[in-house]
């Protein structure tokens, strides 16, 4: 495991983080560090523990052992609203949106959490334009296509103006064009926030990645650039072997 000395402030830190389901060690003794302004991808084969790790970070699961610190605050065992309340934007794997409400209402509810009525309205308009949702802004989200729903959820993340963004498979179910736009958006968000992205789509990771963390059997196998991981023999064996 390569660990570089970095002077930037630490944003997310886990120490000995473990999540066991009965006898299964989904996440096992993970030490993970994310620095300010970083864009980190978490990859790994199915069952490697990256989504479980993600759910521990967002408060959806309470870890069996270990601790999580987000910008110095201990968040181990926090409720999701407490994690989000720190200024963390979260997008889950299965789109979690307000299905019965309009696109605008979805985004407004996010903006209004942090701003007064006036600012929330203008921020909603800005976000709708930025994500190019103008044509469907009054449509009920439950009736939209999967890719559009993903974008509405991203819109909610953006509208909260978070300083840390956690995304679980943001490009899942998107077309090539939509994926490219999502990558572009993620780079834009990265100008103001640190980001952790859990992703399967290798092409998408190549579009956005700086540093990649490879999970395998609940542990971090290696942490390096995508090129280095693609070239590594161990990594190819556990994950890339079949694809690269």
């Amino acid at each position: 495991m390569s660990r570089r000395r970095d002077r930037r402030p630490v944003i997310v830190e886990t120490r000995g983080l473990s999540m066991h389901f009965g006898g299964v060690r989904a996440v096992d003794q993970v030490d993970f560090t994310l620095y300010d302004n970083e864009l980190r991808c978490l990859i790994g084969p199915n069952g490697a523990g990256k989504s479980t790790f993600f759910k521990c970070l967002t408060g959806q699961l309470v870890p069996t052992a270990g601790e999580i610190k987000i910008r110095g605050d201990e968040t181990t065992g926090s409720e999701p609203h407490e994690v989000a309340g720190l200024g963390v934007g979260i997008k889950t794997q299965v789109p979690n949106v307000f299905d019965g409400l309009s696109v605008e209402e979805n985004i407004w509810l996010s903006a209004r959490r942090w701003h007064g009525a006036r600012r929330a309205s203008s921020l909603t308009t800005e976000t709708v334009e930025r994500l190019r949702l103008g044509d469907i802004r009054r449509d009920i989200v439950g009736r939209l296509a999967h890719g559009q729903r993903q974008w509405v959820e991203l819109g909610m993340v953006v509208a909260a103006e978070p300083w840390l963004v956690l995304l679980d498979e943001p490009a899942a179910g998107m077309t090539h064009e939509e994926t490219a736009r999502t990558a572009e958006l993620i780079r834009e968000i990265n100008e103001r926030a640190a980001i952790i992205v859990v992703e399967h789509d290798m092409q998408f990771i190549r579009m956005i990645s700086q540093q990649v963390t490879l999970f395998h059997e609940g542990r971090i196998l290696m942490e390096d650039t995508m090129e280095a991981i693609s070239a590594d023999k161990r990594a190819r064996e556990v994950y890339l072997g079949s694809q690269a």
């Binding site: 609203h81 309340g85 307000f98 299905d99 942090w114």
Partner: peptide, 24 residues
């Protein structure tokens, strides 16, 4: 009101409301 609209949001998707930072 903001309160009422958040309540409707929670009705629609409680987890999402929590992930936006609202204590449902």
């Amino acid at each position: 009101t903001h309160f009422g609209r958040v309540c409707v949001g929670i009705r629609e998707n409680e987890l999402r409301a929590e992930l936006l930072g609202y204590d449902s």
